[in-house]
């Protein structure tokens, strides 16, 4: 399964990449902000996206809106420090399927990814 990691922090991308590798995901593409992700998403065609909220150039919410507007249907998990309920609602309205707040444990991220993929499969 192809996964796209979108986060401006290389440290966070590496941490998430290691968790994905442990879960058995092998095809992983990285992007450093929303703009970078939009330029790669058509060619890579991810089946799951993990997206940060606060990023330079284009934030995660704007990216998700653009991705959905372009017809992107793959599930999106927002991985962010934005923990307020209003932010979660805003993200869901923008087209985010699931949400996890940083800091997270490897187990909690794994659980959220599996939950998201199960829901997408059932839909």
């Amino acid at each position: 399964m192809k996964v796209m990691l979108i986060d401006d922090s290389k440290t966070m991308r590496t941490i998430q990449r290691n968790i994905l590798l442990q879960l058995g995901f092998k095809e992983i593409e990285e992007a450093c902000d929303g703009q970078d992700a939009l330029s790669k998403v058509s060619a890579f065609a991810p089946e799951l996206l993990l997206v940060d909220w606060n990023m330079p150039n284009m934030d995660g919410i704007t990216f998700v809106k653009n991705y959905r507007a372009q017809g992107g249907k793959s599930p999106v998990v927002m991985v962010t420090t934005e923990a307020e309920k209003t932010r979660v609602v805003e993200a869901i309205k923008a087209g985010v399927n699931n949400y996890i707040v940083k800091p997270f444990t490897p187990d909690s991220l794994s659980q959220r990814i599996n939950e998201t993929l199960s829901r997408a499969k059932a839909a």
Binding site: D8, S9, T11, M12, N54, M55, P56, T80, T81, E82, A83, E84, T86, V101, K102, P103
Partner: peptide, 26 residues
């Protein structure tokens, strides 16, 4: 890595400011 640590600390703290809308910078 240092930037991500302060980002997580600030983001997690601001979520605890009840009734206030706060944005944080990069």
């Amino acid at each position: 890595a240092i930037g991500e640590l302060v980002n997580m600390i600030s983001g997690s703290a601001k979520a605890k400011f009840e009734g206030k809308t706060v944005s944080i910078s990069c």
